[in-house]
Each structure stands twice: as structure tokens, then as C-alpha cells.
């Protein structure tokens, strides 16, 4: 059995009276990339927010296992306490501090801890060299792609062992998407477990060690990324039919 870093079991959560998640369970093995895909409105974003305490879980649990195997019940913690355990989240939309400079974004990323800041700054700027020239710029002036990089960089400044990413490629040009996914793989290669949800399911499955398919707030399918990618039902239902070479060149 893989050493599990994060596990969610039987999560039920929602906004207001209606539940969005119904009894959802996922697990992230240590050092793996785990993807969650599914149609719009399937509750993927809500799942991440519930794990991170931004949405209250009505039932179920989310547990983080640290290196020593100690279990931490995430549903009882506030977001800043969760981050102190070595997790971090890059939200889909509001993933930077727009009024603050790039450098200040990175400072906040390390929770204003000077030691941590010094520890991680160089490595983060090596992973995202473009940011080096933009340190004094206000984050709101960055382009979409640059902002995404900053969002990731901010999260890395806390030195996390598990990163949760909410649609990291949303709204980005294809070339930039490639770049983002490459960075994610590089981060994972350094030992950071990744849990990501994505619309670009095909590319996401291609790099995922394991994947879950959610539909209408429930677990639908799961399996290694490559297996799901090869499954014709999955391809038909969730990846959009890929046109055959003959269809592409009539």
C-alpha cells in the first residue's frame, strides 16, 4: 500500500442548503500527481475548498498524514493552520495579491517568516526565472500567464510537501499551458505531492499517476492516469472525441 499523504473520505459539503459533494473520497499517495477531472459543476472546486477548510464539510473527513505518519484532521483546522502542516493551495481565480508587488506576494507566501523566506526565495526564483525581473511590479499588472506563475511561486514559498492546484491552466494560451504543466512536473520531481483539478483533462491525465472522475458531486471512476486515458468510455464522455486523422484531413 502506498504511503498516503492526504485522504478524503465520504465528504459531504455545499453552499447554503444544497450539498454539492455527496460522499466523495480520494487519496493522494506521497510524491504522486493525482488528478480530479469531470464536467462543469461536478464539484471539483468545492472538493478542494472543503479539504482546505474554506467550505465547511457537513459529513466525512479529510486527513493529512505527515512524514511520521501522524494523522491531522483537516476539517477541524483553519486554513492558516492547515498551511502550517506543509500543505498549500493555489486557487483558480484569485491566486495572487493584486495590489501588492511580486516580491511582497512571495513574502506573504512564506507567511512573513524571514527564515523561511530566505530559505526558499532562491529556489523559487530559479524555478520561475521570469519573476526575477518583475519583483517591484504590482501583481495586477502581470499577464495571465505571469500571474499563474506567481500564484504557484507564492505557494512554493512556504516549502510545502503537498500542493493543491485548482485548474492551473485556466484561461491560458496553449503555449503557456505547456509551460505551466512543465513547471508542475518539475515541482513534483522535487518531491512535492500534487493534487490538481483540471478542465484540460487529456493533458492532465497524461501526467497524472492516479486520477478520479467526479460527476454531479459523486465519485464516478478512478484509476491510474494512463488507464483512464486509454478507456474509450472516458474518452467519449469526458475528454471530447478526438478526431481521427481521416476526420482531420478529409
Amino acid at each position: 500500500m502506498d504511503d498516503v499523504a492526504l485522504a478524503a473520505r465520504g465528504l459531504c459539503a455545499g453552499y447554503g442548503d444544497e450539498d454539492v459533494l455527496h460522499d466523495v473520497s480520494i487519496a493522494v499517495p506521497r510524491g504522486a500527481i493525482v488528478a480530479v477531472i469531470g464536467p462543469n459543476g461536478s464539484g471539483k472546486s468545492t472538493l478542494l475548498k472543503t479539504i482546505y477548510g474554506l467550505v465547511r464539510a457537513r459529513r466525512g473527513e479529510a486527513v493529512l498524514y505527515d512524514r511520521r505518519g501522524k494523522a491531522h484532521d483537516l476539517t477541524a483546522l483553519r486554513p492558516n493552520q492547515i498551511s502550517a502542516l506543509g500543505m498549500n493551495l493555489v486557487p483558480q481565480l484569485a491566486n495572487v495579491f493584486p495590489e501588492m508587488s511580486v516580491l511582497e506576494n512571495l513574502e506573504i507566501g512564506s507567511a512573513l517568516n524571514k527564515v523561511r523566506f530566505a530559505q526558499h526565495l532562491d529556489r523559487v526564483l530559479t524555478t520561475f526565472p521570469a519573476l526575477r525581473t518583475m519583483l517591484r511590479r504590482r501583481a495586477a499588472t502581470l499577464s495571465g500567464g505571469q500571474r499563474q506563475m506567481l500564484g504557484l511561486a507564492r505557494a512554493l514559498m512556504s516549502g510545502p510537501t503537498l500542493l493543491i492546484l485548482d485548474e492551473p491552466s485556466a484561461g491560458l494560451a496553449p503555449a503557456v499551458v505547456e509551460e505551466v504543466f512543465a513547471k508542475i512536473k518539475a515541482i513534483n520531481a522535487e518531491g512535492v505531492s500534487i493534487l490538481m483539478i483540471e478542465q484540460k483533462a487529456r493533458q492532465c491525465l497524461a501526467m497524472a499517476d492516479y486520477a478520479y472522475v467526479l460527476e454531479q458531486g459523486r465519485n464516478r471512476l478512478e484509476g491510474p492516469g494512463s488507464t483512464l486515458l486509454a478507456d474509450p468510455d472516458v474518452v467519449r464522455l469526458y475528454l471530447g472525441a478526438r478526431r481521427t486523422a481521416a476526420q482531420r484531413n478529409p
Binding site: R78, N88, I108, A111
Partner: peptide, 9 residues
């Protein structure tokens, strides 16, 4: 929210 995620109380 992002501030909380970044570890700020």
C-alpha cells in the same frame, strides 16, 4: 482567503 492559505492568522 489567499492570506489565510498563506498561513496568516
Amino acid at each position: 482567503d489567499l492570506a489565510a492559505i498563506s498561513g496568516i492568522d
